[in-house]
Computed example of a mutant assay.
Amino acid sequence: MILAGDIGGTNARLAYFQSQNGHLHLLSERVFPSREHSELGEIVVQFLQDSGSRPDVACFGIAGPVQNGRVETSNLPWVIEQARLARQIGLPSTLLINDLEAIAWGIGALSSADLVPLNRVNGPVAGNQAVIAPGTGLGEAGLFWDGARHHVFACEGGHSDFAPQGDLQIELLRSLAARFGHVSYERIVSGPGLVNAYEFLRDNGCGTESPELTAQLAQGDAAAAISRAALDGSCALAGKALDLWVSVYGAEASNLALKVMATGGLFLAGISPRVLPRLKGPLFMQAFLNKGRLRPVVESIPVQVVTNEKTGLLGAARCAAVRSSKELSPHVCA
């Protein structure tokens, strides 16, 4: 039995999978609010005690850079060490991978029902792939194609420098630089980043906050309130903020696609499905295609939204299954 985890800044998802005839079957799953716990081990121990069982292998996708079996989470006050986690679970070892690495592992297991295309590409599709996922932060990963299979690799591209396009985004950069110093794409293309974009527009007189949204913002989860108001049309200012967010998202998604040369496809995960109506509008693809002389290259890259929220869990389970079988390199995704 495989214990898989998808550990983000907001929620920690744990699940048991069983591998049968080359397929993974979900047995049980629980979601824990990450910030209500002092460490991952506390959550895992609770899950195991409640289930009354022990896994054979375990793999966790963690939001943060994993180095030498250790990760300091980007959006939580946690330090996770795979050796200590293995002792808490009662296993000889565990596997920690980046959360976007886990999603990348899961891409190969998705069906067409799990994907919504944003563009149409003529001709055969093959080659490297890339994954980008806004959430509490902004995660990115790649899949290198060797001609036979994909090899997954993690990166921290979401923390690269924000490159504004146009006067409005330049003013946004100046505003965020005054607050944070260094301004990465994650400062905009994330849940908290949507709040940053909204507050920038509101504080610079770009619109009026509706009374309904004011009340919702006071109740917490500002990003969700802003996106809902934008999508249902109840607040024009929220709509402007989401449009700004989508444009910056499209530009950075295209940056990633070019850096990885993702001719095999770009996959949008994380909170992307929640704003799907806006992503299907013109702004995302306009920003994505605005690459000057390289426009023909990005026009050839399929862009799809991942709607299966269990992709990270599935990927962590696939990684654990491959690693334990020792049939493939631990970073090879058949």
Rank of each mutant, 00 (worst) to 15 (best):
V306S: 03
A223F: 02
L91K: 07
T94S: 11
T307F: 01
A86K: 09
P117F: 08
R120D: 07
A109T: 02
I170M: 11
C333F: 03
I188Y: 01
E327W: 11
Q286G: 06
A15C: 07
H331Q: 14
N98C: 07
R202H: 14
V121R: 03
G127W: 03
A262D: 05
V152I: 12
K240R: 15
T263E: 00
V297H: 10
V44M: 08
N255I: 00
R70K: 13
G158D: 07
H159G: 07
V31P: 01
V305L: 04
L258R: 13
E101D: 09
L118K: 02
S247K: 10
T73G: 03
G22T: 02
A126Q: 11
A148C: 01
A262Q: 06
Q129K: 10
G147D: 06
A224Q: 14
R35M: 09
E39K: 13
L242N: 08
A224H: 11
R323F: 06
S19Q: 13
A253H: 06
V322Y: 01
T307D: 00
Y16I: 04
P92F: 09
M261D: 12
A224W: 02
A63V: 05
S160V: 14
V71Q: 07
G205E: 13
S28I: 03
I2D: 02
L14Q: 08
V195I: 12
G239H: 05
L213Y: 11
A63T: 12
G233C: 05
N204Y: 13
K240D: 04
S227F: 07
L48Y: 12
R54M: 14
L14R: 05
L76H: 08
D56R: 11
R318M: 08
F32L: 11
G123M: 08
A4V: 06
E140V: 15
E29G: 03
V303M: 06
V305I: 11
A253L: 04
H159Q: 14
L26V: 04
G181T: 12
L176H: 06
Q304P: 05
G135R: 02
I188A: 04
E186W: 07
G239S: 09
G281C: 09
R202T: 01
A130C: 14
V248Y: 05
L256V: 15
A230C: 07
M285F: 10
L143H: 02
G142M: 12
G142F: 09
I89T: 05
A287P: 08
R174E: 14
A113S: 14
H331N: 12
I7H: 00
R318A: 07
L237W: 14
S34K: 00
Y16P: 00
L95S: 09
E101N: 07
E199M: 10
L176I: 09
E29T: 12
V260P: 00
F153S: 06
D99E: 02
I97V: 14
P92V: 08
G158T: 07
A130E: 01
M261V: 05
Q304E: 13
H331L: 03
L26D: 08
S93D: 15
S51T: 15
H331T: 11
M1F: 06
C319R: 08
Q219N: 12
